[in-house]
Design a protein around this nucleic acid. Structure first.
Lengths: 322, 322
DNA sequence: CTGAAAGCGCTTACAG
DNA sequence: CTGAAAGCGCTTACAG
């Protein structure tokens, strides 16, 4: 591959002026400019980005740290991040942390070493201080890490309220909520929304923990339907959880929506594929990812951010399970 | 961050000997070694990988180019690639090409610029020559690009034969195949397997193109069930296709498996979540990804490869739809 | 407007 | 066994 030296030689100028035209910085005579352009063209030269990175301490790469790309919530998020990054000329490094502290730290070290420009976090295994120590532009996506880190989440509580109201509107009188893991902010918010509505309406209810996992959800739902046979409406903490509920209902010969109404949360593609199609509270997953990427790039490029905290609206989608 | 200079100063040696202990290369006296180690420790020094990359022309990064991470076949593949890469100390750059020539080329330029060490391709928009010109270690995953590029695929034809035989064994007498896009090797192979079995058994059949897309599959299946009401067995070219078939059956009040038996292909998590659970031909997706990554790293590190072509076995999983 | 030089943080012949 | 020096391919003060 041609280097800046080759171009300089061919254009009969110094490497400094080649660099100047490359970066559009400093004075360059029209003639020099023309010669350099021609030389670049004829050598089909492209500047070596590693050399640039070494000097500038900026790599044009951003890290996307998530628990597991295999979880159906993340591919769309990753896609959005990558799309935005790509249009702004950034490259995305993918990191599956499995929420393990050691793995996350190892990734951070490696990324920092590579002069990564910033990181989007959908995990929060480490403490707020650990993240601060990184001293890197960051965005917290679907998580909250601290007030000083720009954050993008959905209106989880609001969505949970709407889902619960929806079940009541459909005539349910005994509600169950299969919540996500305690301590995970999104799960906690959804739980709060559910509780607020059932308490306000004084409706009977039961809450069980399904950890956002399908197998766990299926097992918990089996138990639920056996122990609380009066339950006629289920708010699942996620669409994957809801899929588990549907399997359990099927095994126990409970009909959805005839015997039990069911609504999920997330709006992942899965919901549409299920039969009957799953009612859900749809998050703007792509928008969340795209916004995070834009916020990160703004930080990197030292542009002002309008706000440090974005809560994106959710949308109730009534399909066939309610 | 501390540099090699700082370490050298602190250890009272030259940067050359620090580099020697860092790389475990060349002679270093025990004492020097000890001093350097201590200095590294006390400064918590880690070598700057960008500087290393610049000199070595090797970045420790590999590119994963796929059409769209949002397609449920790819997350597990990406996860496997990332896991293996990570254990060997490599970092993965994610690229969604949408099968667009221009995008793919742009990615390649950017990756090459960054001294990427190798690329795993699950796309094949460009010509074989374009790939050769890259002059980079490569592996073709779930695609075939050329004989000189190591390739990892599944036994697609064999799996299709088994799926078709399975439908026949379950008593089906009029089979339909909803195939994937023509020209895509995996889809073609599955089609061939289907045809081989139906012709051999002289069983009535019809083939329609569903492009591996759920909406398309649903529409095509609706048409299928209306036009060919005798069809009692469907081999869907992918699990996503099968999900579309299930939706169409539901709308038209065809019962699965009572009226129509259905089997998919891929073994993605979706299949287990459907009700009834989807019978399918399971590919070892994770293994394919892991093997590709290992093959790529072998090439990068100039180790011998046992073979240029790997066809991994598939497994028929009879669940509730047959 | 332009070039020589130093520097980004490493590695590796080359002498000694 | 060790260090001074050149070089990987850029960028940017600094003189002129």
């Amino acid at each position: 591959m041609a280097t800046i030296r080759d171009v300089a030689k061919k254009a009969n100028v110094s490497v400094a002026t080649v660099s100047r035209v490359l970066n559009n910085k400093g004075y360059v005579s029209e003639e020099a400019q023309k010669n350099v352009m021609a030389a670049i063209e004829s050598l089909s030269y492209t500047p070596n980005s590693v050399a640039r990175t070494l000097y500038n301490k900026s790599s044009g790469m951003i890290g996307l740290v998530l628990p597991d790309i295999t979880n159906p919530f993340f591919p769309e998020l990753a896609r959005a991040v990558e799309d935005v990054a790509h249009t702004y000329g950034y490259t995305v490094v993918l990191c599956n942390s499995d929420e393990e502290v050691a793995k996350e730290k190892k990734y951070f070290d490696a990324l920092k070493q590579k002069y990564i420009d910033g990181i989007i976090l959908t995990t929060s295994s480490l403490t707020s201080k650990d993240y601060d120590r990184l001293d890197l532009p960051m965005v917290a996506l679907d998580r909250r890490i601290g007030d000083h880190i720009p954050t993008v989440v959905s209106e989880n509580k609001q969505g949970a309220c709407e889902a619960t109201e929806h079940l009541l509107a459909k005539g349910c009188r005994y509600l169950a909520h299969l919540r996500g893991p305690e301590g995970v902010k999104t799960a906690d918010e959804r739980y709060k929304g559910f509780m607020e509505v059932v308490e306000q309406h004084g409706v009977e209810h039961v809450v069980l923990n399904a950890e956002f996992q399908i197998d766990k959800a299926e097992a918990v739902a089996q138990e639920l339907f056996t122990t609380y046979s009066q339950v006629d409406g289920v708010f699942a903490g996620s669409d994957v959880t809801a899929a588990g509920v549907m399997k359990a209902a099927h095994t126990l010969n409970k009909r959805i929506p005839a015997d039990i109404k069911l609504i999920g949360f997330d709006g992942i593609p899965l919901g549409k594929m299920l039969v009957p199609a799953l009612s859900t509270v749809e998050q703007s997953i792509y928008k969340m990812g795209a916004l995070s990427a834009r916020l990160l790039i703004k930080q990197i490029e030292k542009q002002p951010m309008a706000s440090m905290y974005y809560e994106l609206p959710v949308k109730l989608i009534a399909r066939e399970t309610t």
